[in-house]
Lab assay of single mutants.
Amino acid sequence: PKDEAKKKVKEAIKRGDEETAKRIAKKYNLDWDDAKREADEER
């Protein structure tokens, strides 16, 4: 599900692992900028 994928993307971003985050986002066709902004807001 997309929500689960987005959570994984945000967790990867918070760990500083943007490569993984981008790969997950691409795989699930998520909006990378959107997920990154959300992760930054939660930090």
Rank of each mutant, 00 (worst) to 15 (best):
P1A: 14
P1Q: 14
K2V: 13
K2D: 12
K2Y: 14
D3H: 12
D3G: 09
D3Y: 12
A5H: 08
A5V: 08
K6Y: 14
K6V: 11
K6W: 15
K7I: 12
K8H: 09
K8E: 11
K8G: 04
V9M: 13
V9E: 00
K10G: 04
K10M: 14
E11S: 05
A12H: 07
A12D: 00
A12Q: 03
A12M: 10
A12V: 02
A12W: 08
A12S: 04
I13V: 03
I13W: 04
I13K: 01
K14T: 06
R15N: 11
R15I: 06
R15S: 08
G16Y: 03
E18N: 08
E19V: 11
E19P: 05
E19M: 07
E19T: 10
T20F: 11
A21D: 01
A21Q: 00
K22E: 05
K22W: 06
K22A: 04
K22I: 09
R23M: 13
R23Q: 13
R23F: 10
R23V: 10
I24D: 02
I24L: 13
I24Q: 02
A25F: 00
A25M: 02
A25R: 00
K26L: 13
K26W: 08
K26V: 09
K27V: 09
K27L: 15
Y28D: 03
Y28E: 03
Y28P: 02
Y28V: 02
Y28C: 02
N29G: 15
N29Y: 05
L30I: 15
L30D: 00
D31S: 10
D31P: 07
D31I: 06
W32N: 01
W32L: 09
D34Y: 05
D34N: 10
D34L: 10
D34Q: 13
D34M: 12
A35N: 04
A35G: 03
A35S: 06
K36Q: 09
R37I: 07
R37G: 06
E38W: 07
E38F: 06
A39G: 05
A39I: 11
D40Y: 13
E41S: 12
E41N: 13
E41Q: 13
R43V: 14
R43E: 13
R43L: 15
